[in-house]
Amino acid sequence: MTLDKNKHADFYKSMLRIRRFEETAIEAFSAGKIPGFIHSYIGEEAIASGVCGALEPGDLITGTHRGHGHCLAKGMRMDRMMAELYGKATGYNKGKGGSMHISDFSCGVLGCNGIVAGGIGLATGAAWGNQLQGNSRVVACFFGDGAMNRGSFHEAVNMASIWSLPVVYVVEANGWGISFSTRNAINLVDLSERAKAYGIPGVSVDGYDVMAVYEAAKAAIERARRGEGPSMVVCNAPRMRGHEEGDPQTYRPKDDIDKAKKNDPIKRYSEFLVAQSILSKDELKAIKQQVEEEVAQAIKFADESPYPNPEEALQDLFVEEK
């Protein structure tokens, strides 16, 4: 697939936004400015960037506990995201959600989710809603390989298949469910084989390769938009860091981690772009500069924003009559 230069620049920027947001959030987390958990999306940038790059603006996504990348790739603002991580009133969820629940519904993000596989039924329901409403919106549903063993996964993929719902199941296969390797948790080498059991197409791609992800996602999204039903796209992207920040990964062979880091998807992609003369080093640098400015702004915004008034803890339980 030949992509134009602008598309490549978009991909590079999207991946870099995620990487730099995560690195900055990890610093702030280590400095004690961010409470709770950080499950970083580092190493999976090509997946959200490739998939969201194939979506139309009105399309929808569901994210996971490792969801910052989904939000950024779908176009959410860094500053309000960072503020949410800080637990500030100016965050997307007014400080009520945090890292695992960060979302912008107006941007088509139907929730990041603290429950593994928690968003799969919801994504499938949104696809059903789209079908009932007669619109042409597609839902991209992100989840990890660990989620593939939850019953909610099986129930939802079957449901989408029987009604040809416009949803694409994007498996972010990082090879681990915290400390339990997928190799031991699923008795398949190619996870996309599971698609056959539900009568839908499934494909496995290199989840470090944004172009491969984009190509597979585009085909699946177009198929869904044509009304031909769901697909599964398994993106293999070995986990580059611990399950969460602070996880020493004592359960994991060191060479497994080193190998993942050596294949760093952003490094690989930028080298490819320069070698193929798609983007010059200067052009990459200019993009980098834009991203750095956005990150600096986000941190400033989060630092300077107020914490929510404690009284707000008792608000938003129920919505009044609409």
Binding site: G121, L122, W128, G129, L132, Q133, E155, M159
Partner: peptide, 21 residues
């Protein structure tokens, strides 16, 4: 009619609600 999948039925309800149902 739904297949016997209560968890997904409740997930569908939520997703469908978010799209206007």
């Amino acid at each position: 009619n739904m297949p016997i999948s209560e968890n997904c039925m409740a997930g569908l309800a939520l997703g469908a609600a978010m799209t206007g149902c």
